[in-house]
Design a protein around this nucleic acid. Structure first.
Lengths: 345, 345
DNA sequence: CTGTTAGCGCATTCAC
DNA sequence: GTGAATGCGCTAACAG
């Protein structure tokens, strides 16, 4: 049923090697033979067997994406799909296929990665998250497989990664609120075991300190990347004796919860509480009021991750001089949720 | 560097065939040999080469997902990611890998599918959309490759597919509005070349007719699966001499645009215009007001698609008696956007 | 320029 | 029960 090189060769009256040479665009081949073989391949509907090719070339022309397991519902959907789009687009352009993998537990995740890399099904991997003390990173680094991390590792400084400068992004977001005249600014954070939560919190702290503003621990709450987290935080914040007039929120989705919470408590945004969050998902401009957000270029993050991974794979050699950590620039999109100066200015 | 069966065999003092037999759980093998070999495999860190395995077994244990090319921004993100999650989860459980593919144009898409299937890199494919007259479907059907369509084909009745009963779903949504006392009901549709748009429109029409309600062509607008479509539709609808009091909207995302449009025109939902839409994305309950929506079980759609594809692949034989079209049940989630009866009831 | 040979790592015949 | 041989489809040396 399947048409092989051998079949084509027989039909064309040449040797299999010749056909193979035509396929790979070998230089030392007569133009006429090449043309003839190509026509016959077309006629017979020849398609190279990718597996056989990989087996002998010891390279698969494909990479894999490791989806994190947890139930980060909303966050995952919007954020990861955009990331995946970037990765798949770039990989396609470079002639690479993308394999998606996930595991129910961290152990399963590791098994999947191990099977894929050690079984030589893929040439490299992209990790879409950065937890504290991640076993998958340890494995990949130890075994020396090409991989890139979207995010930052707290353990290793010398691994390939693509990231937002989250510290600076949070600094910028906070500074914006300060420049609007806010002095009491709170922070709604994400899960403390994610590096991104910690980096953003740190940036917020730095901005507050640099501007000589008070930093109250009760103005900082931790939660998930879920709207519920923002929702719950509100009943807490608004009952504080000295409540903040503005909030930096770790993710747009959480902001949606914040908005809902405030509306139920009959507070209005931005008059009672101004808001800036992160990621600038498309829906943040559709909420009432539209949310100010730091755009981190998610698609670009994915696109770049794929690019540097494939470069690394093709280079073989790990040149020690290369940049390991790639930063995608962010920018603040100011919308209605932060357009208010307290103190009646 | 790589450990092969041969290496293990040499170290264990047995033949490669024996090791292979242990690997595949062959029955005629002495318990002791089996144990010994397994230990050595563990010690040496043996991992089967997936490519070599596929080459000889003529099966890859992987399937591919074809992402549609267009820029269906929001729709894609939320909807497809959920679908993918369902597919990947089920495939993993069945021991299958999932490959994601897309093309910039329909031609590229076809090339990718062809390369993957004909090149024997995957055993089957899942199509995530259903356009009118899709060339990819023609190809897959003609060549006899296992595939399943998430959606419905207008051309073939006998292909494997997983779908919502969109006609009935729209009928239900419309009936709900009618039962609330609405008589002038409009419909905001999606791209007319997508089957889903047409099915939902048809269900709306049927419900209107069955209830003896007038069906005005100016109450129906077509657009994209984007919030802009809903936004634009509003300035049109609300300027109609006899404007509808309720709307069935083809997708939640479009409803977001509708809400924004109405709020800018100073109309309120549901008092001035009641709303029901489809897909029940997580954010539909977060908007103000929360949107009534038909939940179509997106994750389930993906999960089922993967399941029947893999079943088909493993069965080899296409038993003619089997069900080709699988319907995932939907249900209406009533929220504030439709909780209003016109005429002051 | 072209043909011959020898594997890539594995599974599946056969023999014994 | 186990070992030896053969081939999956292809590429990469070798020779000419």
């Amino acid at each position: 049923m399947t048409v092989t090189i051998k079949d084509v060769a027989k039909r064309a009256g040449v040797s299999p090697s010749t056909v193979s040479r035509v396929l790979s665009g070998h230089p030392r081949i007569s133009a006429e033979t090449s043309r003839k073989v190509k026509i016959i391949m077309e006629e017979m509907g020849y398609h190279p067997n990718i597996m056989a090719k990989s087996l002998v070339s010891r390279t698969t022309n494909s990479i894999c994406i490791i989806l994190p397991k947890p139930a980060e519902e909303l966050f995952s959907n919007l954020f990861f799909m955009e990331l995946i789009r970037g990765i798949v687009t770039q990989a396609s352009r470079s002639g690479y296929d993308v394999l998606i993998s996930s595991g129910a537990t961290e152990k399963e995740e590791l098994e999947a990665v191990s099977r894929l890399l050690k079984g030589r099904r893929v040439d490299g991997a992209i990790l879409l998250y950065s937890r504290k003390g991640d076993a998958v990173i340890d494995f990949l680094k130890e075994e020396g497989y090409p991989f890139v991390l979207v995010g930052r590792s707290d353990k290793y400084d010398d691994i390939l990664s693509v990231d937002t400068d989250n510290r600076m992004a949070a600094y910028d977001a906070t500074s914006h609120l300060i420049s609007m005249g806010h002095k009491r600014i709170g922070f709604v954070s994400g899960p403390p075991n994610l590096i991104v939560s910690r980096d953003r919190l740190e940036g917020y702290r730095a901005a507050m300190e640099d501007n000589g503003l008070e930093l109250k621990s009760e103005w900082i709450v931790e939660g998930e990347f879920l709207q519920e987290s923002g929702y719950r935080a509100m009943s807490f914040f608004m009952n504080l004796p000295s409540r903040p007039t503005a909030l930096v929120v770790v993710d747009d989705i959480v902001s949606f919860g914040v908005l809902r919470g405030l509306s139920e408590l009959n507070y209005s945004v931005p008059a009672d509480l101004a808001l800036v969050s992160f990621n600038n998902i498309p829906l943040s401009e559709l909420s009432t009021p539209p949310i100010s957000s730091i755009d981190i270029g998610i698609y670009q993050l994915g696109y770049t991750a794929s690019q540097i991974l494939i470069q690394t794979i093709q280079k073989q050699v790990n040149e020690p001089g290369g940049t390991k950590r790639h930063i995608i620039p962010h920018r603040l999109i100011v919308r209605e949720s932060s357009m208010y100066s307290p103190g009646g200015k």
